[in-house]
């Protein structure tokens, strides 16, 4: 510590140690915050149509268009260390082609809808226009965390993504269910997904799975032929 440079090095060196320890404490503080999400998912409307994966494709696939209702309370996922929560709804169904060898059924799963919920501390990271950003920031003025953003009420929500299966066949698929998943992205620490086991004060999602349903047959083509010369 005899000269300016040595003092600067020493202070900065210990600063990095303090940083690391504080970051570890912040990450560990997440374990103290109970996570008790609950949700109900219900299918509202189902449709199967035929379409092309892209404009120049000669292959036609079957796409499921799903409407659903979601009522979720994820407010317990928002603590001071939460940057954002990624919420997504998937459709899953048993895979008849891979379920052999007596190893139980394989499951196909595809995401049909998702959203990002930011904590107020991460609002500036949202990729939205200036007007929407202003509104978002003003909605939680003065608050550092806003658990009420974790409450979702979707009624007859249209899916963002139309899904198909690897073999392109989806009509009349039975035993399909919708599931709610989430992914908590902290400021410091590890990403955590929907837990499959109870872990301390982190509980599994209460509900969050719809009743099994069966997709309808392909929608008949409308017989409205335009007269083109």
């Amino acid at each position: 510590m005899h000269s300016t440079i040595v003092r600067g090095q020493n202070v900065f060196g210990f600063f990095t140690t303090v940083c690391f320890v504080v970051a570890a404490l912040i990450a560990a503080s997440d374990l103290l915050a109970p996570r008790t999400p609950k949700a109900t998912v219900a299918v509202k409307d189902l449709q199967v149509v035929r379409g092309r994966p892209h404009y120049y494709s000669t292959k036609k696939e079957e796409y499921a268009i799903i409407r659903f209702s979601l009522s979720a309370d994820l407010s317990s996922l928002f603590s001071w260390n939460t940057k954002q929560v990624f919420v997504y709804v998937s459709a899953s169904w048993p895979n008849s082609t891979l379920g052999d060898a007596g190893k139980g059924e394989m499951v196909n799963e595809a995401v049909i809808w998702d959203t990002i919920i930011t904590n107020p501390s991460a609002d500036h990271l949202q990729n939205i226009g200036p007007a929407a950003m202003k509104k978002l920031v003003r909605s939680t003025k003065g608050k550092t965390i806003d658990p009420s953003r974790g409450k979702l009420e979707l009624k007859n929500q249209k899916a963002k993504y139309q899904i198909t299966s690897p073999d392109g066949k989806l009509a009349e698929t039975d035993n399909m269910v919708l599931k709610l998943h989430y992914n908590v992205q902290p400021w410091v620490g590890v990403l955590t997904w929907t837990p499959q086991i109870e872990f301390g004060s982190w509980k599994k999602v209460k509900g969050g799975i719809s009743k099994a349903f069966k997709l309808p047959a392909i929608k008949a083509k409308k017989v409205v032929e335009k007269k083109s010369a």
Partner: peptide, 10 residues
């Protein structure tokens, strides 16, 4: 930071 639940403050 923990008491105020404010990570930016921390």
């Amino acid at each position: 930071g923990f008491i105020n639940q404010d990570i930016k403050l921390a």
